[in-house]
């Protein structure tokens, strides 16, 4: 009996230890970010470069996705609304869905896949090839140059990308509605803006900031802590995407609860 309990202990304890050690390390990493972000020197040029890499270079993929989401969601919603004779509510329904949830969520998931994996892989390969050590020995703070800049760039770029996705999704929706219900652009957009409130837009931007921060910090954390070897780089990239997406869904759920509580207050 004692043997059985010892065996169980030896299987469970390392995993529990690893989990809590991982949490402590992640906490220390995030805390270090908030400590370093306010302390000079500031790497403004690198932040701008990262904004370009993360923001501008994601535009083609985000554009296509946003546009298609708008068309597909409109098409899929039409039969249900038509059944109740409420097809004219399509613009309002689409605007609420896109601005409150789909825009931020779709953009964040795409960014997690594209940007998060590339950050994880880039920093992971820099770790493996001793480039991070090379920065350290040349009296430069690699955390500031690599982590702070990327996390700031993802945090500031994601809300912009989300607004851009929202716009394209609404344009996609408009084209669909225009073709089927012959609604003009002014009529469509009047309905869109009547349906959404300041709280919807504000919470969407705030949520996007959090999503952007999550994508950046998870990618950097996984890359910075990747184990030696090319296998470690692959694992870092993969783990960045999986962990970012998981956290984004949890954050979406939390934000929904908070915004609903504010709305009902």
């Amino acid at each position: 009996m004692a043997q059985v309990s010892n065996q169980k202990k030896s299987v469970i304890t390392p995993k529990v230890d690893k989990f809590f050690m991982g949490l402590a390390n992640a906490y220390a990493f995030v805390a270090r970010f908030f400590k370093e972000v306010f302390v000079p020197p500031y790497e403004f040029r690198e932040v701008i470069r990262q904004c370009y890499e993360i923001g501008y270079k994601s535009l083609p993929l985000i554009s296509l996705t946003g546009f298609i989401v708008g068309i597909v969601f409109t098409n899929q919603s039409r039969p249900s609304l038509s059944e109740f004779g409420a097809a004219s509510w399509l613009p309002a329904l689409i605007s609420i869905a896109v601005v409150r949830a789909m825009g931020p969520l779709v953009t964040a998931l795409i960014a997690a896949g594209k940007v998060g994996s590339s950050i994880g892989a880039e920093i992971g390969s820099m770790k493996v090839t001793e480039q991070i050590d090379a920065m350290e020995v040349s009296a430069t703070n690699p955390f500031k140059f690599l982590v702070v800049t990327r996390v700031l760039a993802t945090t500031f770029m994601l809300p912009i990308l989300v607004m851009y996705t929202d716009f394209l999704a609404l344009m996609g929706s408009f084209i669909n509605v225009n073709q089927n219900e012959l609604v003009s652009m002014p009529t469509f957009f009047v309905q869109v803006f009547e349906a959404i409130s300041f709280l919807d837009v504000f919470s969407s931007i705030l949520k996007s900031l959090v999503f952007g921060f999550t994508i950046g910090i998870v990618g950097c954390y996984k890359g910075y802590n990747s184990t030696k070897g090319t296998e470690g780089v692959g694992k870092a990239a993969n783990a960045s995407v999986v962990m970012s997406m998981f956290l984004i869904f949890i954050e979406e759920l939390l934000s929904l609860q908070i915004v609903n509580a504010i709305r009902n207050a």
């Binding site: 090839t129 001793e130 480039q131 020995v137 009296a139």
Partner: peptide, 15 residues
């Protein structure tokens, strides 16, 4: 560290 130069095995150039 400004007084110490470190040449890495794989050069560690920023690629």
């Amino acid at each position: 560290r400004l007084e110490i130069g470190f040449s890495f095995q794989n050069s560690a150039l920023y690629d």
